[in-house]
């Protein structure tokens, strides 16, 4: 089985990389880009039957820093 973990900065946490991307898009002439937030996608190849609780623990212990980041898990059978 596969799991995708999306790690994003919490709202209210300044995202300097997102801001830089936004400015670069504006520089390329794209109008109407009101905000950009950059995050991470982590793809996991897992043994069948890996529990949701285990994947959640992976996020809590390593994949996300919950002081500044949120995460969302998508499992694909």
């Amino acid at each position: 089985m596969k799991a995708r973990v999306f790690v994003t900065l919490k709202s209210g946490v300044l995202d300097p990389q997102g801001k830089a991307i936004q400015h670069a898009l504006e520089g390329l002439g794209f109008g109407g880009v009101n905000d950009v937030r950059a995050g991470k996608l982590i793809e996991l190849e897992l043994a069948d039957g890996t529990s949701d609780a285990d994947i959640d623990a992976m996020c809590q212990k390593l994949l996300a820093n919950t002081v500044i980041e949120n995460y969302r898990i998508e499992t694909v059978a």
């Binding site: 946490v13 300097p16 990389q17 801001k19 820093n65 002081v67 500044i68």
Partner: peptide, 17 residues
Amino acid sequence: LTETGLLPGALMRNAGT
């Protein structure tokens, strides 16, 4: 030390990138 939890908070990318 912040990632270990020995100190609170986090160090993020510099505001000026």
